[in-house]
Design a protein around this nucleic acid. Structure first.
Lengths: 205, 205
DNA sequence: GACAAAGTTAAACAAACGTTTAATTTAAAC
DNA sequence: GTTTAAATTAAACGTTTGTTTAACTTTGTC
């Protein structure tokens, strides 16, 4: 998929607005104004507001993928967990707006026609996690009987919870600004998720 | 706060629609139709669509509270975790629509004017969790150095992730219907969260 | 430099939005 | 039974919505 400068301006503007106001809360005039283009340009280039959302998702989908190559370099199963979580959180953290949009819109069932592309990506990421866990079990480091789906849900959910409740959590944690919050996510929260997964995978009973 | 039958009809209708279509995606005419009342009744009783959302939250807030009395009956710190998680998930599970609405609308920053009532509730629940953890540390059962905020975020986030990605997860887990999904949440997912928290609180290093 | 295609614009479109109005019905009080 | 307030209604209000139109400008091609 190839986009010209104006199309990319629109996609970025849409991302910014969808992330803060939601899809339904954002008008095409909002987007046009934010992107400094004429309203008609959105329908001209993307067909409709709905198709703009679809295109937006397709445009961003590649940023979801866990990089498997990087993981194969790490030997220890415990270290693999650390690297995987670190990369996952960093990827999500650097695309926080995108994740907000997905979180908001994926809940509204009638949408997500493009869910096929997303489904494949989620399945890919699940398989990566499953292979790490199974490798750890084979090495005798991890206990068996832990569903990768649940671990993935825990990791995603914990991160998302930080995304969605930023105002409350930032206040509770005594963090001053947005940058500090981002740093907290990339350090303390990342370590927490790493620790949690390792604790779970080595827990008796 | 006292509501007559018609007002309650409207609140339930709003809950059903907000949970599936979001606040912005739902029109007052949708709500009026769903509740079998005239459109003007919504403004007559609630003032505006925005105030209806506020009133809806205030109406539902009490359902959030963790019941502390029930916990004091349990002696063992590990068992207290089990009971707390079980009650928490059951409470969330029985108000799934409400939690969807909160999850969707709490992300949109300009909303949540009523956040004061919510803030107090969240702080109450956090304090309950903190006291359980501290009790466990005092008894020598739990390791110190685990932030209750992170544990609470993990519990909420994991549950929410199941709420928000029902379509995908139900498919992945091979669950046939909505009831089965609810059962999975109240059994397998609950056990997973219990196990995760206990593993974390007893984990070395 | 003429021609066709692509890009861009302001204006207009009908439909849907939240809200208000004014008229009417119901209920309660005396 | 009359009076007064509350409840309910259909219709209309002015905006805003997403989209389309038709005129105009820019760009690239021969």
């Amino acid at each position: 998929m190839e986009f010209n400068d104006k199309q990319i301006d629109i996609l970025f503007a849409a991302e910014r607005l969808f992330a803060t106001k939601g899809f339904d809360g954002t008008s095409v005039r909002d987007i046009a104004h934010e992107a400094n283009v004429n309203v008609a340009m959105i329908n001209y280039y993307f067909g409709s507001k709905d198709k703009l959302l679809d295109t937006f998702f397709e445009w961003r989908v590649p940023d979801f993928m866990i990089n498997v190559d990087e993981l194969s370099l790490v030997g220890n199963a415990l270290d693999k967990i650390d690297v995987m979580v670190d990369r996952y959180v960093k990827s999500m953290s650097s695309h926080r707006k995108l994740y907000r949009v997905i979180a908001i819109e994926s809940t509204l069932k009638q949408r997500m026609l493009i869910s096929d592309a997303f489904k494949k990506l989620k399945i890919h990421n699940l398989e990566v996690i499953a292979s790490i866990i199974n490798g750890g079990i084979a090495d005798g480091v991890f206990k068996a009987g832990n569903d990768p789906i649940l671990i993935h849900s825990m990791m995603m959910g914990t991160f998302m919870n930080f995304q969605m409740n930023q105002v409350f959590l930032q206040d509770q944690l005594g963090i001053a600004d947005d940058d500090g919050y981002g740093q907290y996510i990339e350090t303390t929260l990342t370590e927490f998720i790493q620790k949690t997964i390792k604790a779970l995978l080595t827990y008796e009973k």
